[in-house]
Simulated scan of single mutants.
Amino acid sequence: MLVPAVNAKSAGNEPMISISGEAQGTTYHIKYFDRQKRDFKVQIDSILADFDKCLSLYRKDSEIVVFNNNTVHKFQSPYFFPVLNKSKEIYKATSGAFDPTIMPLTEALGFGARRTDPELANVDSLLQYVGFEKISFNADSVTKIKAGVRLDMNGIAQGYSVDIVSAFLRSRDIDRFMVEIGGEVVCSGVKHDNLPWTAGIENPLKRGALFATVKLAGLAMTTAGNYNNHFTRNGRVFNHIINPKTGSMEETSLLSVTVFSKDAITADGYDTAFFVMGLEATKQFLSQQNDLEAYLIYTDEKGKVSSYVTEGMQELIKEIPNP
């Protein structure tokens, strides 16, 4: 069971600093307590800009785009290898439900940097380029074993960026903070009066409304859902979470998957995988884990919106009546 760690230091009277900005095509909000009242916005913006130079698919000069257009890439930043390493771990644990070589499919189905028509996608022909075993890597470089393979780290990179910013704050002796980037969150320590940080879980059927709140201390929280990234064409709804083993955007009873872990890179990779695995397989998987917790919102057999929460988070999550 993953147990949230409570900061041993009693919350004092340090001032709380709040900063916000834009990164990775979304927004970020950071709050932290610092007796020195330091403003780290410039440093954090620089860190996130460097992160984009490594893993953004929307920058033609990013490392991941350079690799996608070539066969071998020698790492220029410290970010590429850890994301590949964690991806390999989750790929193996989920039997391929999470697979960053999914890029040919996401692009063909209309979710890449270039908007394409998913109805024209030849999925069967693209599956030959999907499979994490089709690349090899070490701490210095990554190589394609099969030409045509391309990486899409959008299912895990944002979580890692939250971890990186959190590590920066800790390196500045900040141990009471909340870092949120695009809805992915890491919390450390407590607020004033030893109260825990509180994060919201969005209602998947009511944009902007909350379905539940959760108390976080020493935990990361990430959420995946079919409700924030989809589009309709010719009366059909296309959702962005694709099964990398079949290439299809399969129907699922899951509406939202929130994962809790000790770091956001782990939570972010698994929330994507769980959506692909579906409700029952995810519940079975979670029953065998000691370092993951989750909160699942789904549609039951009667069409009613229901939820499932793992034991370790039951006392920390509060559902909002009639969300």
Rank of each mutant, 00 (worst) to 15 (best):
A209F: 12
E202H: 10
F231P: 02
A97S: 14
A167V: 13
N203C: 04
S77A: 04
L55D: 01
P4T: 07
L296H: 07
D52Q: 14
E280D: 15
G247T: 01
K283P: 04
R236W: 00
G303N: 05
I265P: 11
I47N: 07
I135T: 06
I201D: 04
D152H: 13
G183F: 05
T71H: 09
V309K: 13
K245H: 02
L169Y: 14
Y298L: 05
M16D: 00
G218W: 12
V3A: 06
G96T: 13
E293C: 13
T143I: 14
T272P: 03
F211Y: 13
R150G: 01
G235E: 10
T116I: 05
A108E: 07
N228K: 12
A209E: 15
Q24H: 04
E89M: 13
T101L: 05
N239F: 01
L216E: 10
N243T: 13
C54Q: 05
Q128E: 10
A157K: 15
V309N: 06
S10K: 15
I135F: 03
N70C: 02
T246N: 06
N229S: 08
I242L: 01
T106G: 02
F211N: 09
G96D: 10
K88R: 15
N234I: 01
S10N: 11
R35P: 03
K31N: 06
M313H: 04
L169D: 00
K134P: 00
N69W: 02
K318R: 12
V305D: 02
A217V: 11
A267I: 03
Y129E: 00
H192C: 04
S306F: 10
L205K: 12
N234A: 03
I174Q: 08
F98D: 03
K215D: 05
T116P: 04
S46F: 10
N85T: 11
S87R: 09
K41Q: 11
Q36L: 02
A5D: 09
S306Q: 15
T299D: 01
L216A: 04
F274R: 10
V65N: 12
T26K: 14
A49H: 15
D50Y: 11
N70Q: 14
T246R: 08
T101W: 08
L210I: 01
G112H: 11
A220P: 10
D163L: 00
I145M: 11
M1P: 14
E251H: 10
L120C: 11
D45E: 13
Q24K: 10
M16I: 14
A209R: 15
V257F: 00
V305Y: 07
